[in-house]
Design a protein around this nucleic acid. Structure first.
Length: 211
DNA sequence: ACATTAAGTGATT
DNA sequence: AATCACTTAATGT
């Protein structure tokens, strides 16, 4: 299948004909194997990758060399982080790695301004990509904030224990849930977890602190 | 024995 | 993490 048709097949329903033509003329299609790293942190980004097939992951690597996956990109998606870079540094903040075998359309960054100016369908595309990422970001924000519930419960118990100067607190899971504005089920689960960790011991209407 | 309330669990979103 | 639906355990009457 030639380049033109390939692009048409994958992107035809979201990009206008003219835009496809432009992409065909200035972009290149590459086939990549799983594990191929297209962009590394600190690299100067010269091309915007758009996924034609397969899956790519965008990761950040911390000081210990641990990979933290920010998100995955599938067919038709592009890395939004790349878009923002075009407007500023041009240095990548992230690593971009193929999760599976797949194909990418690489489009020169220097021509992107023009796309934004000329093609409404490109603008929509960029906005949609941004939007998706933003949603995902908010989701993870939520988790990060809420994930601290186990710590909150522990703090809560500590405080109660201190206030009553006893390790044996007479309280129900429901009451804790009310005070921390969460559900009883969640409290029960986390308490159970804490019990397994040997930090507390659970009874009906009572919780004993073991620390 | 039966009803009520607290706590535990799996599945789903 | 939240919610639902359901089970199990402890307590009170």
């Amino acid at each position: 299948m030639d380049k033109q048709h390939k692009l048409e097949k994958v992107l035809g329903d979201i990009f206008s004909e003219k835009l496809l033509e432009n992409l065909t003329n200035h972009g290149k299609v590459v086939s990549l194997e799983e594990g191929t790293q297209i962009i590394s942190r600190g690299d100067e980004v010269k091309n915007i990758p758009i996924i034609l097939s397969g899956t790519a992951k965008v990761v950040r690597t911390d000081d210990n060399g641990e990979e933290h996956i920010l998100f995955y990109l599938n067919e038709k998606e592009a890395c939004t982080a790349t878009f923002s870079i075009c407007a500023t540094t041009k240095k990548s903040e992230i690593d971009f790695i193929m999760e599976t075998d797949g194909e990418l359309l690489l489009f020169p960054v220097r021509l992107m301004d023009n796309l934004t100016k000329e093609y409404p369908s490109w603008r929509y595309y960029v906005c949609r990509n941004y939007n998706n990422r933003m949603k995902e970001f908010l989701d993870t924000m939520d988790s990060v904030v809420f994930m601290k519930m186990d710590r909150r419960i522990l703090k809560y118990l500590e405080k109660a224990s201190e206030a009553l100067s006893t390790k044996l607190i007479y309280i129900t899971h429901q009451e804790i849930a009310n005070d921390l504005s969460t559900s009883r089920v969640v409290v029960s689960r986390l308490l159970k977890q804490l019990e397994h960790e040997g930090k507390i011991k659970l009874f009906r209407n009572r919780i004993e602190l073991l620390f």
